[in-house]
Simulated scan of single mutants.
Amino acid sequence: MNEIKVLLVEDDADDHAIIQHLLLKIPNTRFLMDWVTHYDAALKSLATHNYDVCLLDFHLGAHDGLEVLAKAGEKMWETPIIFLTGQGEYEVDIRAMNLGASDYLVKDQLTAALLERSIRYTIGREISRKALQKANEELEMRVQEKTADLAKANRQLRQESEKIKLFAFSVSHDLKNPAISLYGLTERLFKNYGDKLDEKGKTHCEHIMASARQISTLVEGINLFIASKKTPLNIENLDLVETLAAIRAEFSERFRSRNLEWSYPSTFPLIRADRICLERIFGNLVDNALKYGGDQLGRIQVGVSETEHYWILSVSDDGIGIRTKSRDRIFGPFMREGNVQQSEGLGLGLAIVKELVGKHKGKVWAQSGPLGGASISFSIAKGTS
């Protein structure tokens, strides 16, 4: 037989007797009932005892049941309350439910079956509420633990990243000075004693100087790549016509020597971005087209469009294009198209582009271009600040 602890808050002895009689008629359940008759006793009982359910009358002399409901909600007592009244009053019903009553019963219409059903449903809902509350608390605790673990992992990752950057700077510094010395000594050897060297010796000197220049260029590229991760942005309104005019001047000699056509729109929307970053992005993309466009390269074109949240900029060419399987990996460090031994550059240019675009909350991607060759596009978030 089930046992249910009940608190009855009722100031009328006859109504107390009626409710006690109805509870006795409910089969398979033993009700252990405490009876109090006024406001203060109700509050004390709810605060100090653990009941399965409370049956609360509306009229309690100087106070009423709504005041008990309000205080129970304020104190966050967990005993579910079934509100009782002598006659159906819609406004009292609504107020009782808004204050947290689990059910509302009219005493004149009360039967043992109705009372049993209300008590059973109220206790069932309370059990479900507590189970849900426990699950939410456990979930919140797990989220907090995972958040703390993630924060710790992020701190460790930042620390390791700083160590790697420091190591890269140290290595690049240690490499560059010997490379410069090696180049200078070899150049002096070639200049002062070149007439005493045979062709094989002269070729060796040229190879040594070329390797020293390559090491120096590699060091500078690594430093630029690291700087692209560390340097803070200086966001301002940019006129891209001026930026692209500067890019054209930078590459003008290479354009003329290869008889290349360079074009971009005569007008651009005002874009908010870091000027130095954007010049570096366009410079690297143009340089990439010149290096990997092939002998058929004849035209490089800049495009612009926009969506609701992004500006979309692109550099396209009519060169040999990019193999489909290479389109994602070309943005990794030291990745180069074609024969690595024959390719120019270090494979850092597009990796730097990806870092700088990411700092502007955008993405970079490669695709077949409108000119038949390669097209590399990148987005810049309009909300960058």
Rank of each mutant, 00 (worst) to 15 (best):
V6A: 14
L7Q: 02
Q20G: 13
L24E: 11
K25H: 08
L46M: 13
C54T: 09
L66P: 09
L66E: 11
Q87A: 09
V92R: 05
M97E: 02
M97W: 00
N98A: 12
N98F: 01
A101M: 14
A101D: 12
K107T: 04
D108E: 13
T111G: 06
L114E: 05
R117L: 10
K134C: 10
A135Y: 06
R142M: 10
V143I: 15
T147Q: 15
A148Y: 12
N154G: 04
S161C: 09
S161L: 15
A168D: 03
V171A: 07
K196C: 08
K202C: 12
V219A: 08
I226L: 08
A227R: 11
K230A: 15
T231E: 04
N237S: 12
N259T: 04
W262A: 02
P265Q: 09
S266W: 00
T267H: 03
R272I: 07
D274H: 01
L278C: 02
I281L: 02
I281E: 01
R299N: 09
E308Y: 08
L313N: 03
V315P: 00
G332S: 12
E355W: 01
Q367R: 07
Q367P: 00
G373S: 04
S375V: 02
I380W: 00
K382E: 06
S385G: 13
